[in-house]
């Protein structure tokens, strides 16, 4: 187990390095940022001087090495725009994204798994068709369009929820979002809901045909017990990896949703940083996002050991 963990950590670090390299190179393919930072009337000499000052005239690999050694010490450079350390900006945005991702995931699990179970345990019925329909819709409705529609209906028409921003209140010393999170979280969750509904449905259908379910019935067990101990417990196993992957996707922040709802999270920060070609800020965001994704994937694999006794890592 320890050896497995160690090798996974090493490969994760290599993966992270690769992602950072890719992000760095792609950013620099778009040209250097200095031309955007100076006024239109700056002379070529001024631009060159600024380039010299910020180090953008050095070979790319040297710049990448510089960035890495900084990153190792927690220094990801400063945002050009905010004139603040890039990582500080990222860290400020994290709570909002975690809130949004967690609420969205919770909604998706509640809706998706329930719909999937209902459909999967009543195959080829109206209930099943509805479940399949929702699964398909969830995965095909464009989130930005859905976000706009939700705003029109629930904020503008009905006035139930605010159309943008994040409001919080304090409860037992915790800062929690108020109803302002409902619309963005719902819009964000729908894709995951669809995916979970589809996977849960097929997992349940598959498990219901397993021989051990027949055994359970041949033992004369109560329906409830067969359902929970045999069907659902076994169906849950393949869902873990999907939930893990989906959570990492939600946590990396949704650019569309956060932008539409002006939710001050990582997604809107990234959108802004890319728009203003704020190189260091993009890199810091990318670093954090990849860290979360890679970390959650590792965690997902470890959770399997707890749920499925057949899986042991060596």
């Amino acid at each position: 187990m320890l050896r497995y963990l160690l090798s996974r950590l090493i490969s994760s670090a290599a993966l992270l390095l690769g992602v950072l390299f890719l992000v760095f190179m792609l950013l620099h393919l778009t040209g250097d940022p200095v031309s955007l930072m100076v006024s239109r009337y700056a002379s070529p000499e001024d631009i060159e001087a600024l380039r010299e000052e910020l180090g953008f005239n050095r070979p790319l690999l040297v710049q990448f090495g510089d960035f890495l050694s900084g990153a190792f010490q927690g220094d990801f450079g400063s945002s050009f725009r905010y004139r603040q350390p890039a990582m500080d900006l990222v860290l400020q945005r994290i709570p909002a994204t975690i809130e949004l991702a967690s609420v969205a995931l919770l909604m998706a699990i509640l809706m998706g798994v329930t719909i999937g179970i209902l459909g999967g345990s009543n195959p080829n019925t109206i209930l099943d068709s509805i479940a399949r329909g929702i699964g398909l819709l969830g995965q095909t409705i464009p989130t930005f369009w859905l976000g706009l529609i939700l705003i029109i209906i629930f904020s503008l028409r009905l006035g139930w929820f605010p159309s943008f921003g994040r409001e919080t209140f304090t409860f037992l010393g915790l800062t929690l979002p108020d109803q302002s999170i409902v619309l963005p979280a719902f819009a964000l969750s729908l894709f995951t809901t669809g995916q979970l509904a589809r996977f849960t449905r097929s997992a349940v259908m598959e498990v219901m045909n397993e021989d051990y379910v027949t055994t359970a019935r041949s033992k004369g067990l109560k329906k409830k017990r067969i359902y929970f101990k045999y069907i659902l417990k076994n169906s849950a196993i393949p869902l873990i990896s999907i939930i893990g992957v989906q959570f990492s996707y939600l946590l990396s922040g949704s650019i569309y949703i956060e932008t539409i709802f002006s939710w001050p999270g990582l997604g809107s920060l990234l959108a802004e940083a890319v728009g203003t070609r704020d190189f260091f800020l993009v890199q810091a965001t990318a670093f954090f996002t990849s860290l979360v994704v890679i970390g959650l994937h590792l965690l997902t694999d470890l959770v399997y050991v707890l749920v499925d006794p057949r899986i042991r890592y060596r």
């Binding site: 397993e210 021989d211 051990y212 027949t214 055994t215 359970a216 019935r217 041949s218 033992k219 004369g220 067990l221 101990k229 045999y230 417990k233 076994n234 196993i237 749920v307 499925d308 006794p309 057949r310």
Partner: peptide, 24 residues
């Protein structure tokens, strides 16, 4: 019938691995 199954009449199957719940 359910109260008889596993109680008065039992059945065992060919493939015992697939017939046992893997997570119990």
């Amino acid at each position: 019938l359910n109260s008889l199954r596993g109680n008065k009449i039992s059945i065992i199957f060919q493939d015992a691995l697939r017939s046992l719940n893997p997570v119990m």
